[in-house]
């Protein structure tokens, strides 16, 4: 069976114990940078639609109703939040203790 976790000491020795190393995402400032990166990406993905007059790509988007400005952005945001909230409320109905089936 290959499900057993080998002892932690079996790891390759790193140059510095991991506990003492500071990783990039350990700094809250860098996490904020990632979040800002998402904002910028959203802004760019929306702004590029404004260039349609110059680039002329909207006619390639099908079906036609999806050519509305920001359609995919709004759809993505709303569906994501909807899926998470619906899943969250489903928990009240479906969640049981881990030993529910008692096997």
């Amino acid at each position: 069976m290959d499900k057993q976790a080998p002892p932690q000491s079996s790891g390759q020795p790193s140059e510095q114990p991991p506990e003492q190393r500071r990783y990039w995402l350990d700094a809250p400032r860098n996490v904020d940078r990632v979040v800002k990166g998402v904002y910028v990406l959203c802004a760019l993905a929306t702004a590029i639609e404004l260039l349609d007059g110059w680039l002329g790509f909207k006619h390639q988007i099908h079906p036609e109703f999806a050519q509305t400005f920001g359609f995919y952005g709004v759809f993505g945001f709303v569906c994501y939040v909807g899926a998470v909230l619906a899943g969250k409320s489903l928990r009240r109905l479906l969640m049981r203790p881990e030993d529910y089936y008692d096997e």
Partner: peptide
């Protein structure tokens, strides 16, 4: 095609934004 590329990027970027908002 640019249309497909941009629409997909927009969909994914805003979904990622939703995750960020929900987590924060």
């Amino acid at each position: 095609r640019a249309g497909h590329l941009i629409s997909q990027l927009q969909l994914l970027a805003f979904a990622a934004l939703a995750f960020t908002v929900l987590i924060r």
